[in-house]
Amino acid sequence: MQRGNTLEQLPTSVDAQRNAVKNAQEVLGQIILGKDKQISLALSCLLARGHLLIEDLPGLGKTMLAQSLAKALGLTFRRIQFTSDLLPADIIGVSIFRQNSGDFEFQPGPVFSQLILADEVNRATPKAQSALLEAMEEHQVSVDGQTRPLPTPFFVVATQNPGDQIGTFPLPESQLDRFLMRVAIGYPNEASERELIVGDDRRLMLDDLEPVAGAETLLELQKSVQKQNVSDPLIDYVQALVRFTRESADIEIGISPRGAQALVAAAKARSFIESHSGVYPDDIQAVFPSVAGHRLKPAGDTRFRSPSELCQHVLDSVAIP
């Protein structure tokens, strides 16, 4: 091969594609220890063309996850640290007047990358937040009346810190909905933590990380995920779940039709990664807390203390057809 870049040897068969995903899971697992489930969910989100919201306390490896994801998949990566003085132009970019050419030249902002880490997204003002969220939704930005497409694939990993309440602007429900999944990372288990403490510096490991796939491969993977079989009984199941969330006394606002779409899209990616012959109810259950957790609004007097408990309650209450 003249190009010398093995990344661009596109895996043609579905098996080869699955191998690429497996490899990515493996290398990511070496850096982020003991968080296989979260890695799998993050990959699912990416393959389902959705955006990911990581919500957890600082120091649990949110940034590390996003960075290593970008690195392992060979995507261009930019990080935007959201602060209260962040302006939309800081995200999208600005047109600068060039004196020698007498013309305005567009200076693309960090949003023109394939993978963006929007760190502590709830610290910025709603105006800045909505600039990013609009870009996520439209896959394009409009600057000075000109529409500019964003690169493909385009994947946003936003993090937010639930503990901070002062000086933050929590994302409203309508904007949370833009994220396919909301994932919490949680503390590592003891063995993993021990290795984190005594082992190599993760940052150095990240630098050494060799990409296992490329943007092209990712696009192919996304296409294959789309083709994952969705059977009638499975749709029955999804509808039963959605209906339950709308009718349950514990839930004030249930899953919207867009939420149901998101559920199936995420489950498709999960079933692809798991090499299932179609989307199984198991896939739905695996992604359900991440996909539905931030979309459900629990009733005021609910006995469930966290969204994940509520989600588990939903899963335990709906029969699988």
Binding site: P281, D282, D316, V318, I320
Partner: peptide, 9 residues
Amino acid sequence: RHLGETAQD
């Protein structure tokens, strides 16, 4: 079989 128990479970 429990309610909501997947085939794998």
